[in-house]
Amino acid sequence: MNNAMPPIVYVIDDDSSIRSGMNLLLTACDFRVRTFGSATHFYQTEFKDEPSCILLDVNMPGLSGLEVQENLNSRNSHIPIIFLTAYGNISMSVRAIKAGADNFLIKPVQKEDLLFAINNALERDATARKLRALSEDIRFRYASLSERELEVLHLVVRGKLNKEIAYELGNSERTVKAHRSSVMEKMQVSSLAELVLIATQLKILDVDSPISNRLSLKKTN
């Protein structure tokens, strides 16, 4: 039995009839819905990191929808945004899409078009969530390496042989093999190709100092 909560749709629109209509429609479609009459009310709410998207009116008193989008981008928000407007134009839609909007719909929007846009946004959000979770997991594994293991990792992914690594680090080849085995175990990989792929994802193949790189990665966590 799946006990997961349904996705939540945040509706930000100064028109109370729009908010009411969206609430009725989306609730009937098994979404959770929260409505806000202005960006100010929206910002006063604390949000959980959960599957969601925003239906955002463009023209509102106070902050416009485009300004709300800019503000959310500055906060590194990952919530997909679907713009709704009765007064859209090409330049406005291009600006919104370039800034990361998921869609730009013109009111009155057909139910099928709205649900299609919402489901697409939520699907992309789910994919992005999985990628972020994987990235965080990889960073956690990387941070678990000792300084010597970190040095070995950087040399291994650059194609160095065990004897070359031993010479460069002043260790025995047996010690390097032990460190290499530990690296593979902690990074949860079974081949050099997998390790190189992770190193590419971490963007460490072109970094000279493994220690400084690990510190910079930790600062971004």
Rank of each mutant, 00 (worst) to 15 (best):
R34D: 06
N103H: 15
N76K: 14
V11Y: 05
S91W: 02
E123G: 04
F42S: 03
L169C: 05
R141M: 03
L150Q: 06
R180E: 03
K163W: 02
K163E: 13
E185K: 12
N120Y: 04
N89E: 10
L105S: 01
L195G: 08
R214S: 08
H41K: 15
I12P: 04
A4S: 10
Q201M: 14
L114E: 00
V176Y: 15
S212E: 03
M5P: 09
I165D: 09
T220Q: 14
L114Y: 00
N162A: 15
K203I: 11
I82A: 04
E67Q: 10
T35R: 07
L217S: 01
V157N: 12
D13G: 12
I82M: 04
P108A: 02
T220W: 09
K107E: 01
L145N: 03
V152L: 02
D13W: 08
I204C: 13
E70H: 14
E46V: 13
V152W: 02
T40C: 08
R19T: 07
S93M: 10
V157Y: 11
A4Y: 11
V183A: 06
V207A: 07
L56E: 05
F140N: 15
F31H: 07
R139L: 14
R32L: 06
L217H: 04
I118K: 01
A96K: 08
L56Y: 12
E112G: 01
G88A: 15
S91P: 00
A99F: 02
A178F: 13
I211V: 05
K107C: 04
Q44I: 09
D206E: 01
L205G: 13
P51W: 12
R75G: 11
D125F: 04
K186R: 02
N162H: 09
S216M: 13
V183P: 01
H154F: 08
L84A: 10
S191C: 04
F31N: 08
I204M: 14
V11T: 02
L205R: 14
R34L: 05
L115F: 06
T220L: 14
E112P: 03
L195H: 05
A126W: 03
G170A: 12
T175I: 09
L195C: 11
L205D: 06
N120T: 05
T85K: 11
V196D: 09
E194S: 13
L66M: 13
A96C: 05
I8T: 15
N103A: 14
F83K: 02
H179K: 13
E136A: 11
L24E: 12
R129S: 03
N59M: 13
D208P: 09
A199H: 01
I118T: 00
K177M: 06
P61A: 06
R158N: 12
F116Q: 15
M5S: 15
Y87G: 10
H154R: 05
S191T: 14
S135C: 02
M92K: 14
S74V: 05
E173Q: 09
I12G: 02
